[in-house]
């Protein structure tokens, strides 16, 4: 938005946290079946957010069965990619917000993406999940997205957090050293129903998100020039 990129955020999580934050009702007419079968164009379900240049495709409770809907399509793991293709002229950037699970939806997201951002709470289990995901992506056929981990909910008072923060980026080139703190401003997003960059733009969390965006933007540019 700061760079005037026309952006669509698709809230694929049936819990609809992103939709809630943008004050948009988590409801899509026809739900997942209609969207996946393409009997309803994606664009018809899109809503403008309060931020110019940012639109949202809201969550819907039927997304909890999206795996089943996808599985009924030919080449199910590439269905989302096909669905998004008509939006190429409409948006410069599409962000797919998925629930934290390994599923057919996640596999679709990996197939449709240029860059996959993985928020990492600096714990052993989340590091393990990241390694599993990296391994899975490495085995994908054809077009492989760039995986980029970043730290989230970081509490520097904890020794384990500090250790992982210091070591993991050294062990994995795919992990950024950017760390979004576990700050009250981040929790306030759900209270205020607005992005932290809108109501506390100079807070450490907002600055970390901006730094993260700069890194993603560079990754996208590199990816785009490599594709040319």
């Amino acid at each position: 938005m700061r760079e005037n990129r026309r952006t669509l955020l698709w809230d694929l999580d049936p819990q609809g946290a992103a939709s809630y934050l943008f004050r948009i009702r988590p409801r899509v007419k026809g739900g997942s079946p209609k969207l996946v079968q393409q009997s309803r164009p994606l664009l018809d379900a899109v809503k403008a957010t309060d931020f110019e240049g940012l639109d949202l495709l809201p969550a819907d409770f039927t997304y909890r069965h999206m795996d089943i809907d996808l599985n009924e399509r030919p080449r199910p793991e590439r269905t989302l990619r096909r669905l998004l293709q008509p939006l190429e002229d409409e948006y410069d950037l599409v962000v797919l917000d998925t629930p934290p699970s390994m599923s057919l939806v996640s596999e679709n997201v990996l197939n449709a993406s240029d860059v996959v951002l993985v928020p990492l709470i600096p714990t052993v289990l989340s590091v393990r999940t990241f390694e599993q995901l990296s391994g899975f992506v490495a085995e994908l056929d054809g077009r492989v997205p760039v995986i980029r981990g970043f730290f989230s909910m970081v509490d520097r008072r904890r020794r384990l957090h500090r250790e992982i923060l210091a070591n993991l980026p050294l062990q994995h080139a795919q992990v950024s050293s950017i760390a979004v703190p576990a700050a009250s401003n981040v929790e306030q997003m759900a209270v205020r129903r607005a992005p932290v960059t809108a109501f506390a733009p100079r807070s450490p969390a907002a600055l970390a998100y901006l730094e993260l965006w700069a890194e993603i933007s560079d990754l996208l540019a590199t990816r785009s020039s490599a594709a040319e």
């Binding site: 005037n4 026309r6 403008a48 110019e52 240049g53 639109d55 409409e90």
Partner: peptide, 10 residues
């Protein structure tokens, strides 16, 4: 006049 407005938006 905002350049971020989508051309096909209402």
């Amino acid at each position: 006049f905002r350049s971020s407005y989508l051309p096909s938006a209402p």
